[in-house]
Structures are given as C-alpha cells and as structure tokens.
Computed example of a mutant assay.
Amino acid sequence: MIWLFDLDNTLVGRDDAFAAWAATAVADAGRGPDDLAAIVAADQGGFGSKAALARELIDRLGWADDVPAGIERFRGGILEHVRAYDGVLFSLDVLRGAGHRVAVVTNGTSAQQRGKVARCGLETHVDAVVVSEEEGVAKPDPRIVEIALDRLGAADVDRHQVWMVGDAAHADVAVGRAAGTRTAWVSHGRSWDGPDRPDVVAATTREAIARAASPAVRSR
C-alpha cells in the first residue's frame, strides 16, 4: 500500500509548537492571557494570514520588527518547539518494514516545512517529501498527489491502494477525494460535520494508521 501523510498536526504537533512558543513570547513581553488568546486566535491553526498574525504580534508584544521580520520570527519559534507526535515515527517504520511506501505531502514554504521535517528527524522514516512551494501546486489540487505517487514509483498504482491521511478536511480529505484515493481524517477529538464521511476517522494519527491497515477496512 501507499501512504501519503500531511505534516502539520498529522505527523508533527505544529499547533502545539506555536502555542508553546507564543506563551513564551507573551510572558517575555510581560503581557497576559488575553494577549495570548488573541495571538493564538489570529494564527487560525496555521491557516490564517501570516501578515495579519505578524501585525497582531507586533501590536500586542511591542516588537520593533516589520511584518516580514515578524513572520520569520514566529516561524523560527515554531521550528524551535515542533516535535513529532509520540509513536508516529515508529508507526511509519512499521509500515515501511511491511513493504509499504510512505510520503509526506505538505502545503507551505520549503524552508519552513523541510525545517520541521529535519527538526523532527522524519527524513529517515519516509520515502519522499513533497512540499507545495517546491512543486508550484498545493492541496487540495490533486496534482500534488500525482507528484507524490510519481516520486514513490507508484504513478500507476490502483488508487484504492493509496491512503491520504491528514487533519484538515478542506485540504487533506479533499485532495484525497479529488485524486481518487482512500482518506483518513485525524480528528483530534473533533466531530465530522460534513457530508461524505472519510473512509477512516480517528482521534490520532497512530489510530488512523491502525484502522486503515486493519483487514476489515482494507477489504472494503
């Protein structure tokens, strides 16, 4: 089987990293809980405007940075704090040890996303890393899935043998559906409230892998 994994909040705790960095930045600036809450809200789980987030940080924390410098500052903070989720690297190794092929398919800048991959030591646990900025196409455009499959030497594989695993319904589940793969949504405790439930819904990535790899699901 072929496994395509989102990076942020699927393999690594991007939001946890941002929250940890933001808490330190707020404390260092002598600001309070309301400022921290506003900064985390402005981040929008990584999907908000980077410029708007930088302006929020500059205004609330009294930074002297301009917006581009502010963006680089919080991106650096994320890299300092990001970690792979517990047990995820082991799960990737188990998949590859069983002959499955594994790729990371992530939206974002090359420097930031590859920085997270390096920081968390993911390179030796996957067969390929595909970053949207490098390819000129991003999820949910299915062309990024085709690029990943080509990198894995699986361009002609039956899409029923391909899993797209991620936490973002609008990007990860959507790209899997557009590309004709099976989909596993990492809910982090959220409820699926849209139509067309993914093939697998699980609270964690490790649970999603276990369910997707189970004989009952594989035989569907």
Rank of each mutant, 00 (worst) to 15 (best):
L89C: 09
V102I: 03
G99D: 08
A154G: 01
M1R: 11
S91G: 06
L89F: 00
R159S: 03
D65Y: 08
R96G: 04
D150T: 15
P195D: 15
V126K: 05
R75L: 12
E123R: 13
E146I: 00
V157T: 14
G115D: 08
V145E: 06
A17D: 05
D34F: 02
E207L: 04
D28W: 00
G108R: 05
R182E: 08
G166L: 06
L36D: 07
G30P: 11
D8A: 03
Q112Y: 06
T205I: 05
R101A: 11
V126Q: 04
G99L: 09
A98D: 12
S219Y: 00
T24G: 14
R31A: 14
R75W: 00
A22M: 08
A203L: 02
W3M: 07
A54G: 09
D93A: 10
G176S: 05
E207Q: 14
R197L: 12
R114E: 12
G97N: 10
T183L: 06
N9D: 15
L152M: 10
Q161C: 06
T106R: 04
V94I: 12
R114D: 09
G30A: 11
A168Q: 10
T10F: 02
T205C: 11
V162G: 08
T124L: 02
L149G: 08
R75V: 01
R197V: 15
P198C: 12
V130T: 04
L11R: 09
D66N: 14
R75K: 12
R73C: 00
D172I: 07
V186A: 07
D43I: 01
R177F: 00
K139W: 09
S132N: 09
I147D: 01
S132A: 15
G180V: 07
I209C: 05
N9I: 02
T181D: 02
